[in-house]
Amino acid sequence: MSDIEIQAGLGRASGGQSSHPEQRPQRAAGRPGVVEIISALFGLFLVVSALVPTLLAPGDPLGIDPLAAFTPPSAGHWFGTDESGRDIYTRVVHGTGSSLVIGIVATAIGLGLGILLGTAAGMLGRVVDFTVNRFLEVLFAFPGLLLALLFILIYGPGVATATVAVGLSTAPGYARIIRGQLISVRSSSFVEAATVQGLPRWRILVRHILPNTLAPLLVLGTLGIGQAIVWASALSYLGLGAAPPAPEWGAMLSAGRTYITSAWWMSFFPGLFIVLTAVCATTIGRSIERRMRHA
């Protein structure tokens, strides 16, 4: 994922001059739409799954039952069972926690580094800006997963490295967005107005520049979590992240690969949850963005 993907979603949410709510009338933010409500409900389902999975799926995600192996979806096993007879639905629900944590931690790492680099470039003068920009250009030459793969090559596969790797590879995108946002806010006329009022630089920074720069990060973060989950599960799928039989979505898909001709449900349902989570994150992110624009 890169800045562009997020920007595609972010639209012109970012503050600054050009995006004053007035100039771009959009759908009113008023009542939430059907899609937003469904997304919110699914989001709630995910959160409950992550916090108290036993509430939604009382079974044991690792409990094997060889007699029930490869059961197709049925009333007893909504999503079917795997090669050892483990219930896929239970595993999907119990896997939510780790998937969400991976997504959130990776996004936090990416955003954190992005904020660090972006604000340094935007605030610390021309030399730093130039240096950081060149550095980001170099990082962008490792498109997509490549940076993550390089990181894994050095530190070896595993959930922790995969998470950090995804976070690292998203950081350049965030950094670039934050730098752009910072520069646009810094040169906006309300910041000049504050200078004219005689506010010291640091107070302008704290009171006007940072809040207006960081407000869109909520949207960025929400959109980013969905993508981070997709990426981390891709690494698991490739055997570089979480390993089976851990109930992690990507790892489950990877395990289902062998049995794709006979037991499609083993791959289908974990993947469906990844997609739905990403869609849910996008919808919620967009909805927040629209609300902020109209606030």
Partner: peptide, 13 residues
């Protein structure tokens, strides 16, 4: 100072 674009001269928050 008084600006042409009054709206832009106010912090949108």
């Amino acid at each position: 100072a008084i600006y042409q674009d009054a709206l832009g001269s106010f912090d949108p928050r």
